[in-house]
Design a protein around this nucleic acid. Sequence first.
DNA 1: GCGACAG
DNA 2: ATCTTGTCGC
Length: 234
Amino acid sequence: MTLTEIPEGWPADEARALAVQDELRGRVVLDEPGPPPGTGLVTGVDVAYDDERDVVAAAAVVLDAATLEVVEESTAVGRVAFPYVPGLLAFREIPTVLAALGALTCGPGLVVCDGYGLAHPRRFGLASHLGVLTGLPAIGVAKNPFTFAYEQPGTRRGEASALLAGPGEEVGRALRTQDAVKPVFVSVGHRVTLDNACAHVLSLTPRYRLPESTRRADALCREALRDALRGAPL
DNA sequence: GCGACAG
DNA sequence: ATCTTGTCGC
């Protein structure tokens, strides 16, 4: 397996990364509804790291949105392209994720990311960044509220409350995907509406807290990392 | 100035 | 993210 190259000109420091976010932010599209939930294809992407060896593995798992059956899977392995800095997560994950998406033979449809889109310090999280670079509709589903404020949503599956960046600025939603289970934090990435994004997430969580797409992608990228490290330890 | 901080 | 045993429940 070949190691994914870090793109030429990829930001090497925080100042350059901030400048890139500043420049790409204007290309986010927020006025398209996005694909209707329960139809077409949905692709989950996720990455796993080995910081000791500086290796990252990414996975893309394409699901039939109606049945949640796996349609196609792909992985990619590369060198970590950026340190972890809150607010700059995308620069760490995107090169390898793009390689995994590029290895698919079918169109990904809606991309579901682990993390945020609009709910971001500069309103340009991983899901927005990935959406802009690929042109694909994308949403973010995070396990934590980051620094944002929210009221605890109702205890039943499907209930939601606003994720607020400030008084009156809704950047996402705390969405209960299972009865009495901690909510997930959904935000728009690119070319999808927040209501639509939440409907997709509910459609992807018939049984577990996290979307089936991210659960599948999470398992696959861990496996890919193990396999990659097995071939060349230390 | 200090702490918090998606994955 | 990752480090980690047992344990409770379907």
